[in-house]
Amino acid sequence: MKKEEVPQDASALQGYTRELCYVKDEDGKFVTSLSSGWEVKAQALEHAWDEVEEQLEEARTLVRVGKRSPLYFFMKKNLMNLSILSNYSGFGRILVWFHLRPLGYRFLGAKGWARYAEAFNCSVEDLKNHKL
C-alpha cells in the first residue's frame, strides 16, 4: 500500500482514535501513516452487528413464546454465549442452561439474581423489570 492510498473513510473509530498503518512513501521506504477507517472494514463490522441484531430479534421471539427465559435475551444482548455467561456468573454450565429456560428461571433466588446482574453489568431491578 502506498502512502497516498491510505483510506480515510468514515468508521466507528471517529471521535475516538485513528489507526496506524505501515505504508510505502515515494522512495519505496516504509513509513507510518494514520487512517480514519476503511469502507471495507466498516462494512464488515456493520455486517457483524447486523447479525447480532438478528440474533437479538430471534431471542426476543423465543422469550415471548416462552421457550427461553428473559436471561437468554440479556445473554445475547451482552454478546455472550452459555460458556462465557457461566464463567461470569460463576454458575456451572448446566445450571445456566437451566436458568435460561422459563422453568429454571422461576427457581432463581436473591443470590442468583445478584450474580446475573453483576455478569450483565446492571442492577437486579433492571434485570427483573426487563424490557425486551
Partner: peptide, 14 residues
C-alpha cells in the same frame, strides 16, 4: 465478513 475483520481490523496494521 469474519475473515475480513480478523484480517484488516484495527490491530493488524492492514
Amino acid at each position: 465478513g469474519h475473515i475480513v475483520r480478523m484480517q484488516e481490523e484495527i490491530g493488524t496494521g492492514g
